[in-house]
């Protein structure tokens, strides 16, 4: 069983790999479409800007391999910007098309009094849909760093965190495609539980 982390030039891929290894899975950081096609579990990481990340994925010719992988039914986990890339489009720096694996849009966190942008720190999750990954962080705090969030139908929103007047989707699910807005690799022992749950998903497919 091998988890492949898509390597397209986004930062801090190594910390994701360290968390996956710590929970006992073997991991490969790769930009080879053949590795993506044969992965048992795929992780799309991401830090930075949506448009630049999509450009990097396109330049590395990884858009189609990721979409094909998603169709296979095997587990795919997007983290932070990697979660946002799963959606149809983002309004960050004009309108940019995403991977289109979950219907919805990425928009900026609005200015609210006493709520800084980016949201940076620990926020408490509330589970909205039954899901094994969401279950691990129900009523728990996880670590967020983001300035944009996803707007999508509630049937895809497995968990949220409150940020001022907004219920920010923290876990989204569309069948085998899952996105987490927080950083499970930086969310302490509860984050490690989520990785264990992802491992169970990978094994059970």
């Amino acid at each position: 069983m091998t988890i492949v982390i898509v390597d397209y030039g986004a930062g801090n891929v190594l910390n994701v790999a360290k968390a996956i290894e710590y929970t006992g899975m073997s991991v490969k950081i790769s930009k080879d479409p053949a590795d993506i096609a044969s992965a048992d579990g795929l992780v799309v990481p991401g830090v930075g800007a949506f448009a630049k990340a999509m450009d990097q994925l396109k330049a590395a010719e990884l858009v189609e391999p990721i979409k094909d992988y998603a169709k296979s039914g095997r587990p795919l986990l997007g983290i932070c910007l990697g979660m946002q890339l799963l959606f149809d489009s983002s309004t960050e720096f004009g309108e940019t098309e995403g991977l289109g694996l979950i219907p919805g849009q990425v928009v900026a966190l609005p200015q609210q009094k006493n709520y800084k942008v980016p949201q940076m720190g620990w926020n408490k999750n509330e589970v909205r849909l039954e899901n094994p990954l969401a279950k691990t962080i129900d009523d728990k705090y996880t670590y967020f760093v983001h300035s944009y969030y996803v707007v999508t139908d509630k049937k895809y929103i497995a968990a949220t965190v409150p940020y001022g007047q907004i219920a920010v989707p923290s876990i989204v699910v569309n069948k085998n495609v899952i996105g987490v807005q927080f950083h499970p690799e930086k969310s302490g022992l509860d984050g490690l539980s989520l990785w264990q749950s992802f491992q169970e998903m990978v094994v059970s497919v």
Partner: peptide, 8 residues
Amino acid sequence: MGLAKRII
């Protein structure tokens, strides 16, 4: 509602 205060 928002972020937890951090202890470092």
